[in-house]
């Protein structure tokens, strides 16, 4: 009788360990769409833990206990709990980069061809958002860089508008010389930074 009771409690304990029934909040680190896995630090008032490998998982029961030690999430847990979420996930965005002739609003020859590739992608995906961001290089003043980056983005927006892309779906931003593709010291002309990035979703 007694052994049976022990057995029962052992089974319950094992069940709890496997399903995490004591902990009711769960965080799992998974790879990005491009296969890279980042890091995440989960913290309560009592402590923290670092998730750094694919499928690292931790549970939190309450704010006064530290997160449980990291273990590995099972495929079964992930598919049972998150299949609905993963099915509704928006498609990953697609990014296109357009380059300009030095100091001008004229696209390079290659980039003129990219415009039609962008249009195809917008139609194929029925894209809801088209984000157009203008970038300048680090030569010239901040004011001029901001303006030229914005004008370049506006140029691209105008071209897409003329081809029938819904203006309500387009957003325009200027990064000026911030966030260069190739970092350079101030004052350096760098053609690869004179660009407009178009991200569609």
């Amino acid at each position: 009788m007694r052994t049976r009771l022990y057995l029962l409690s052992a089974i319950i304990l094992l069940f709890c360990l496997l399903t995490g029934c004591a902990a009711n909040r769960t965080v799992v680190l998974v790879p990005d769409p491009d296969g890279h896995t980042g890091k995440a630090e989960v913290a309560t008032t009592a402590g923290k833990c670092l998730l750094e490998k694919p499928d690292d998982i931790t549970h939190i029961s309450d704010s006064s206990s530290p997160p449980e030690p990291v273990s590995t999430a099972t495929k079964e847990y992930i598919s049972a709990t998150f299949s609905e979420v993963l099915a509704i996930e928006p498609l990953p965005s697609e990014k296109f980069i357009l380059f300009f002739e030095t100091g001008s609003l004229k696209l390079t020859e290659d980039s003129q061809k990219t415009i039609s590739v962008i249009l195809d992608a917008i139609n194929r995906r029925s894209a809801l958002t088209v984000t157009i961001s203008g970038h300048a290089d680090a030569s010239g003043s901040t004011l001029i860089n901001d303006r030229i980056a914005f004008e370049r983005a506006g140029m691209v927006q105008g071209m897409l508008l003329q081809k029938g892309v819904d203006p309500k779906r387009m957003t325009l931003t200027s990064h000026g010389k911030a966030n260069p593709a190739v970092p350079t010291p101030d004052g350096v002309a760098e053609p690869r930074n004179r660009r407009v990035e178009v991200v569609i979703r």
């Binding site: 680190l29 998974v30 790879p31 896995t37 890091k39 995440a40 630090e41 029961s61």
Partner: peptide, 11 residues
């Protein structure tokens, strides 16, 4: 009960 700090990732 918890906060999550991230370094470029999916959760």
């Amino acid at each position: 009960d918890a906060t999550i700090a991230i370094r470029g990732t999916k959760l």
